[in-house]
């Protein structure tokens, strides 16, 4: 009856602890430390890390960058909206923009080539969710995310929006094609 009564000893801190608890605490602590060190370890030796590179940016400036890229590297247009598809040069900068309710423009990348992907929203929060690989990034308006990405498989990829962004949220898609 003591969980809801005062401890049986005034000086309960000095009551010896059973071996079972001590063993469990030791095991659990080791596991906690392993989990902790996995994160810096992966930064050093793993291939999938979130970059810390980010900038403050205004929609106008960013849109200008996007248009500049489209002007230089557009390869075709898709659909009734004539959404441009851009094939950036190997290792180049890729500017992707989220807005209600579209990922703009579409991209054509090469397998095993590393690009600098820039990502921002010009209105509300959006969620970059690349399928079917399942890479998910938060896209915050006013902030430009810069990541090095290296597609490791050819195919057609879809960007779903997985941050709620209003009534058209579930219609917000984008495309990336990766070529051999």
């Amino acid at each position: 009856m003591t969980s809801f009564m005062p401890p049986a000893q005034k000086n309960w801190w000095n009551v010896p602890v059973g071996r079972q608890e001590i063993v469990w605490i030791a095991i659990a602590l080791v596991w906690c430390l392993i989990m902790f060190f996995m994160m810096p370890y992966w930064h050093m030796y793993g291939g999938q890390n979130i970059s810390n590179e980010g900038y403050r940016v205004t929609p106008v400036k960013y849109q200008a960058k996007v248009n500049e890229m489209i002007g230089k590297y557009k390869v075709r247009e898709v659909g009734a909206m004539k959404t441009p598809v851009v094939a950036p040069p190997d290792g180049g900068d890729v500017y992707l923009m989220a807005r209600l309710w579209q990922w703009y423009p579409m991209l054509e990348l090469k397998k095993d080539v590393t690009y600098r992907l820039h990502l921002t929203s010009i209105d509300w929060n959006h969620g970059f969710s690349l399928q079917p690989v399942n890479i998910n990034l938060q896209v915050v308006p006013g902030y430009e995310f810069v990541l090095s990405v290296t597609p490791n498989k050819a195919g057609e990829y879809t960007i779903v929006c997985n941050e709620y962004c209003g009534i058209g949220h579930h219609t917000m898609l984008g495309k990336i094609w990766v070529k051999e």
Binding site: C32, M39, N52
Partner: peptide
């Protein structure tokens, strides 16, 4: 964790409750 511009130091220290010591508490 996947927000732009925030350092990994801040992310790792905080997401791990400083070395998972609060997870240790829950396991206890």
């Amino acid at each position: 964790m996947t927000d732009p511009g925030i350092s990994s130091e801040w992310k790792i220290f905080n997401t791990s409750y400083a070395m998972y010591l609060a997870v240790l508490a829950s396991m206890i």
